[in-house]
């Protein structure tokens, strides 16, 4: 009884530049979740092998950075630490996931060139592995979030559960981003450093260490005016969509709408790129 749930069969069965072949790639890659789930775990264990605390370091690093910056910016903005610190911490956790998907996504195929040229597996396996790894990082950081909830009580209620679909949307976006950027940077190697700088710049432009609402309500009208420009930054919508429920603040529909539109457009772009260039990646790496 041969199953199609295997790499070699299905990728080869439907080949060429068709949407069928592109979707096959995503489907058969998903079917191999035993493989990429194992590899994703391995990546994390691997990074902290031979260290005594192991993956707990992920959480510790996050906590130290957030606390230090929380204290610094609470002073700079003259905010209450109990307001500034949770904002920064949750912002950092979300940004870690977003920037991880973008930065590592831009190298997802280049980094796996050995595997790609030696074993016939769907390209999506590498993408799933990457996003799964980022999800595991996120989960480790949630430990810090829970500790924060104990120290600085947040006003959580049932609507805070909308953080779950918000995170799932983030994952779905992480997948197309890694897929698209992975293919583009494999062909145009200059893109990788460009993407790196854009991500770094975006960190400052996105309300992670600063609080967007504070600037909007600034008594200085020119600051309030400029703060409105931040709405043009797509990352703002991703961060706010997930951070607000995690801090017990009311959701705003417009973040969800913007994110959903980006999700649809992004996947359409990624799928058409995958259709055209899927078979070329093994030639380019």
């Amino acid at each position: 009884m041969r199953q199609v749930a295997w790499s070699g069969v299905a990728t080869a069965q439907r080949s060429g530049r068709t949407y069928g072949a592109a979707l096959d790639d995503l489907r058969t890659g998903w079917a191999q979740r035993e493989l990429w789930a194992h590899l994703g775990w391995q990546d994390i264990r691997q990074r902290y092998r031979r260290s005594v605390l192991g993956p707990i370091w992920i959480s510790i690093t996050m906590a130290v950075t957030a606390i230090a910056l929380g204290i610094l910016y609470a002073g700079l903005f003259e905010n209450d630490l109990s307001r500034q610190l949770p904002n920064i911490l949750v912002g950092f956790i979300i940004w870690g996931f977003i920037s991880g998907c973008i930065a590592e996504g831009s190298e997802v195929f280049i980094a796996n060139n050995g595997l790609i040229t030696h074993l016939p597996a769907p390209l999506s396996v590498h993408v799933y592995r990457l996003v799964w790894r980022q999800t595991l990082f996120f989960a480790h950081n949630l430990v810090v979030y829970v500790i924060m909830l104990v120290v600085f009580r947040q006003d959580l209620h049932w609507s805070s559960l909308s953080a779950i679909p918000a995170f799932l949307l983030l994952v779905v976006n992480g997948l197309w981003v890694a897929l698209l950027l992975g293919i583009v940077t494999t062909r145009f190697r200059d893109m990788a450093p460009i993407i790196g700088s854009v991500v770094q710049l975006a960190f400052f432009m996105t309300p992670i260490v600063w609080i967007y609402q504070d600037f909007l309500q600034s008594p200085n009208p020119s600051i309030a005016e400029r703060a409105r420009l931040a709405e043009l930054n797509p990352f703002l919508h991703f961060v706010e969509m997930l951070r607000r429920p995690m801090l017990g603040q009311p959701q705003e529909l417009r973040y969800w709408i913007v994110v959903l539109v980006i999700t649809v457009v992004g996947w359409a772009l990624a799928l058409s790129t995958l259709r055209r260039y899927r078979a070329r990646v093994s030639y380019w790496v």
């Binding site: 041969r2 295997w6 790499s7 070699g8 069969v9 990728t11 080869a12 069965q13 080949s15 060429g16 790609i116 040229t117 030696h118 074993l119 016939p120 078979a279 093994s282 030639y283």
Partner: peptide, 16 residues
């Protein structure tokens, strides 16, 4: 099936 032919066709049936 690692390299799909740039011209011509290749069909592979079976677990490789």
């Amino acid at each position: 099936g690692i390299y799909e032919p740039t011209r011509g066709t290749a069909a592979i049936r079976g677990r490789v």
